[in-house]
Write a protein that binds this DNA or RNA. Structure first.
Lengths: 201, 201
DNA sequence: GGCGAATCGATCCCGCTATATCGATAAAAG
DNA sequence: CTTTTATCGATATAGCGGGATCGATTCGCC
């Protein structure tokens, strides 16, 4: 199983498979087939096979893939066993919610610290530092992942600072733009809700 | 300007344009051109024209688009002109963050009230009611949109109650199942962050 | 009024992704 | 042992989105 370039879209779906598989009952040698996964997740059957082929490559006809093995392979490909540290800037309600959510670790991301322009007490376990320690902290800890949960007008400047200290993947809840070479997942909660609205009858 | 199917990717960028345009100074007849927008947002110039064409269709050569008119057209396309009420259940950190976020109104959704199983003070403007008033409130206000921000184990029962009172579109941050005829947008923040991580080098 | 510059909208092309199809294979059934 | 069936992996096809190009149009300037 050598490095073939995994399509971006596929890369985006792999965590979904992993998440689904983990919720499946697994006996010792339980197997699961692509059609089943496809039906559960509402994806095309062929699509699933193609995606999984990037991670596994050994499914058996008539039975599918060994669940436990497939999970392991997905975790390997996604690096879930090698957690990476992330920082979060903007510890308002949303920021705190993310900071204290413990579900990220199961996908190999550890939000190591939060930052805020004003000192704020944190009810949870993660430390919250003032913003002036941001750059030094990121460099010392070799941070590559940044999360932006500040109000819109401050987002871009935070984003720029992140890029400056070497962060290469950003998850932002406010609109920002990044230079080439930096990955950006733009979350738009308002738009999501707007989409929900269009289906309300 | 009649119905053409707007590509999903485009739909994702439209709020970005709207947001940007709203931050622009607008005199009476100020205009803005696609190349300018493209430069500001870091998008291809042609891309911008194509996207805007779905909403507007009347830009003038050498000047561009009338800013105010373009904003209005984008708002129209995004449905911001016909606000609809929604309810939110689960006023933890995430729930409160959404409840007090004022960006939803600009896209045509008004979260009218929050609900919680235990009485909780709200720092913001929106009321938070105990859960036993949920059904009556929804029926009295003809609510069609529900937001679920409760912990995973309680989500399904909340979801069922929503369906029961006539809610037809649900935005959930915990995994739930809905019957046919009810639209569900399943949000999974852990998955999103996992996706971000796969791009961090 | 005519010329040049800038921008729009339309068309074309390319690459990527999704879907459909097909042969191969392994388990199950008879 | 043979047949049937479900599933895999590979290949072919189609559709969509992104980028480039081009003629058309309008404003500024002479």
């Amino acid at each position: 199983m050598e490095r073939k370039t995994v399509p971006k879209q596929t890369l985006g779906r792999l965590p979904m498979y992993l998440n689904f598989l983990r919720t499946q009952p697994q006996g010792e040698n339980d197997c699961i087939s692509a059609p089943v996964i496809a039906r559960e997740l509402g994806i095309g059957e062929v699509q699933v096979r193609k995606d999984l082929h990037y991670a596994s490559g050994d499914g058996r006809p008539r039975v599918g893939y060994q669940t436990a093995q497939l999970i392991a392979q997905l975790e390997e490909l996604l690096g879930a066993k090698h957690p990476q540290k992330a920082v979060l800037v903007g510890t308002g309600k949303l920021g705190k919610a993310l900071l204290n959510y413990d579900g990220f670790l199961t996908f190999g991301v550890d939000i190591a610290a939060g930052f805020n322009d004003r000192p704020i007490a944190n009810a949870g376990q993660k430390p919250i530092y003032p913003l002036d320690r941001f750059a030094s902290y990121c460099k010392e800890n070799d941070i590559r992942i940044g999360i932006i949960t500040v109000p819109g007008d401050a987002a871009q400047s935070i984003c720029d600072r992140m890029v400056e200290v070497g962060i290469t993947a950003i998850w932002s809840f406010s609109p920002v733009k990044v230079p080439d070479g930096v990955f950006l997942l733009q979350e738009n909660l308002a738009l999501s809700l707007a989409r929900v609205k269009t289906f309300a009858r």
